[in-house]
Simulated scan of single mutants.
Amino acid sequence: MKGPLPTAESLAVLLRLIDDETPEVRQSVAGALDAFSGDVSELLHEGVMKPSGDDLKVLSSLLQPARRERLRRDWIVPAGGAASLADDWDAFEAMLRILSDYLHDGVTLRQPLGDALDLLAEELEPHYIEDGCAGLCKTLLGSKRLIADRKGEMDPKLLDLAAVIAGSPSNSFGLGLILLLVARRLEADISGVSLPGAFFCRYGTEQGPILLDPTAGGRPVDPAEFTHRIRRYPREIRMLAGRAATTGELLLRTTEELATAFAVLNLTEDAELMEDLVDSLLPGA
């Protein structure tokens, strides 16, 4: 039987104990926080208590186990794994939303991924109507609406797409995913090209296909430069450059990159969770 729904008042009771480092108290608070499913951001906004920055960090870490459990519970993959997703963009976005909720710190107030994408598409629609795919790409990627990460570090936050839309930086893959999801809403024919260590987006014009690196401000990639760039890839990898990545491939890459990023940060429990998600997407899982 379920208990009463968590409230701002019940959260406030726990917040009064958040700076008590006694193991028994911490364990008790962590257990009580399980009822909040890993996210108290809205209740914090409603409540009168405003925890300090340090207390928010502690609170976020105490909420993390519940976010892991929620991800395991909500992660439902078709029997055939990633290949079964085919080009089901609705299912793909639903999985990205689940990952975004898991990557959220649980204390910062922000829009859910779906709502953020809806508003972004509405904002960009006039540019697409006026200038087509070129206008959409230039406005989204070249106007600092999204921020490209220049450090090149492995960081799970780079693939928290809701945070990226809200102003956090991301790499070419994260920015490209947002472009693809917005393009789907606007029925813009833009596809992703997924290569090892790189990600591009492509759309057609009367003069031929245009390829772009999402971190390069929406500017087209020179075809000769791209050919030179991939010349040493094995043939099977070079073939990927000639077709659109499927949603299953994109989801598999997302979980693989997150697994690597958590491993680099020595966050073993999260890395192992991501590895489990990777395995669930592989054939015969």
Rank of each mutant, 00 (worst) to 15 (best):
K2V: 07
Q207L: 10
A162H: 04
G81T: 03
A163N: 07
F200R: 12
E46H: 09
A244Y: 12
L117S: 02
S28F: 05
K157C: 07
V25P: 03
K151A: 08
R253S: 12
L85C: 04
E249P: 05
A285K: 09
S280M: 15
D20T: 02
G197Q: 05
D88W: 06
D20C: 05
E272F: 10
I165A: 03
L96C: 06
H127I: 03
L5T: 15
S28I: 04
A244H: 11
V58K: 00
Y233F: 11
S52K: 12
L120I: 09
L281Q: 00
K50G: 06
L175Y: 09
V221Y: 02
T108Q: 02
G242L: 04
S52H: 05
K144F: 10
G192Q: 03
R184K: 05
G152W: 11
I230H: 01
T7N: 06
L15P: 00
A271M: 13
G218D: 04
R150N: 04
C201Q: 04
A188N: 04
N266L: 08
E275T: 13
D34A: 07
S100E: 01
L43I: 12
R68P: 03
I129C: 06
S194W: 14
Y102Q: 05
V40I: 15
A241Q: 03
P126Y: 10
K57G: 00
A261C: 08
L175K: 00
S10Q: 07
A245L: 07
A224F: 13
T268P: 14
D155N: 12
R253F: 08
G47L: 02
A79H: 14
A121Q: 11
P223N: 10
P78V: 11
S10D: 09
R243G: 04
L103G: 01
A245H: 06
S41Q: 02
L113P: 00
G3E: 11
F173E: 01
T255P: 03
L15A: 03
M1D: 15
A216Q: 08
L252I: 02
S191N: 08
L103P: 05
F36K: 03
W89K: 12
